[in-house]
Design a protein around this nucleic acid. Sequence first.
DNA 1: CATTCAACCGACCCATAAGTCGGTTTGCTT
DNA 2: AAGCAAACCGACTTATGGGTCGGTTGAATG
Lengths: 205, 205
Amino acid sequence: MEMTLKRRETMHRLCGKGLEIFNEKGYYNTSLDDILNELSLSKGAFYHHFKSKEDYFINIVQNLIVQKVYALLIEPLDTDENPLPVIVESLENALEPGKKNEMAYGFMLNDFLTEFNKRNEEISGYLKNIVSVWEVNLVAVLKRGKVDGHIARHVDCEGAATYIIASYLGMRSLMTESSNRQLKYQYIQQLKQYFRSISAHQVLA
Amino acid sequence: MEMTLKRRETMHRLCGKGLEIFNEKGYYNTSLDDILNELSLSKGAFYHHFKSKEDYFINIVQNLIVQKVYALLIEPLDTDENPLPVIVESLENALEPGKKNEMAYGFMLNDFLTEFNKRNEEISGYLKNIVSVWEVNLVAVLKRGKVDGHIARHVDCEGAATYIIASYLGMRSLMTESSNRQLKYQYIQQLKQYFRSISAHQVLA
DNA sequence: CATTCAACCGACCCATAAGTCGGTTTGCTT
DNA sequence: AAGCAAACCGACTTATGGGTCGGTTGAATG
């Protein structure tokens, strides 16, 4: 099964570089040759592994993107502590410019969501699904926070989750190369302010 | 100057229909012919009035979009009342699905911002500028709210404005044809919750 | 009535980029 | 070493869409 290994490796390289460039320039603004040239691969190689550009990107979404969202935004929620600081920390971390040569700016869900909305229902569906999983997990962790006495009883957990997600996605629209540090700081501060207001122990600022 | 009138009218029709379709399908996913067919106009007519698709869209941005942002998001702020309910009302109104055949979903700043970011620096610049004007106005109105005793003294007005804008832009990523009513309600509720927390009179929920 | 020019027409040009296909290379198996 | 299939190559096809250009129309002007 050496060939299967070779296959896997090439597909993996393609997906990795693809995500990197799609993230930089957008899906529709990136040609396959842009990616292929970087990897010194040919059209033939590409179509030997994927049946279309769309199929290729679905692969990227369902492997790499899902995985990153889990790692950055969902798994960190799985603790027994007060959920609010945990959520803050996960978002703060997800907005961090990539250390080394990892993905810059935590994540690009908003960009892809917007790009495929109205243009490709299938891919759009996969992306929305990712957001939805994130939301479900946020709601769960908020509800637990209520039970554990960290979050005020009156809070609408679904609404809070939606609000958190919206603000995070929106931040990614505002953060363009420059300006980021300040914006991120402001965002985190206000998020904390909001969290204080839904916390069970009404700490005054 | 009858001709100038004709010219104006055709350009106006082009811009109106253009905004409508660009908003529906996205700028890069809309061909000039898509628009021209709807208006029964030709390529020749188009290029008689605009020097390029880009020039055309800049026209749309600087006339129609600027105007709508002012009408929906900026001018409503110009009152002497407590700014917080006024802001809520403007956002609520801006997220309203267009009555009659007006623009659906209040506004599409986030979509265009995302689409042109990384693809067209010039247009991107104009759009960012609109957001920036909105932000400046929000900050001003929040500061006035502080002076007037509606907003707590400790609040970072710039941060709050950023946070408000981010959450609004993000909502537009989440609101796809279906689902909207519920999402909007949740958003407004949580926004109010946040506003309560930066209000001078700490009303408990 | 002739002239003129803004407004408009639509066939054409050309660059881009997805996808095809007949081939070549590579490396494992026998 | 021969055979064979997976992996890969790259010229080609095809569709799309922005932009061009030589023309036509129609209304105002003299």
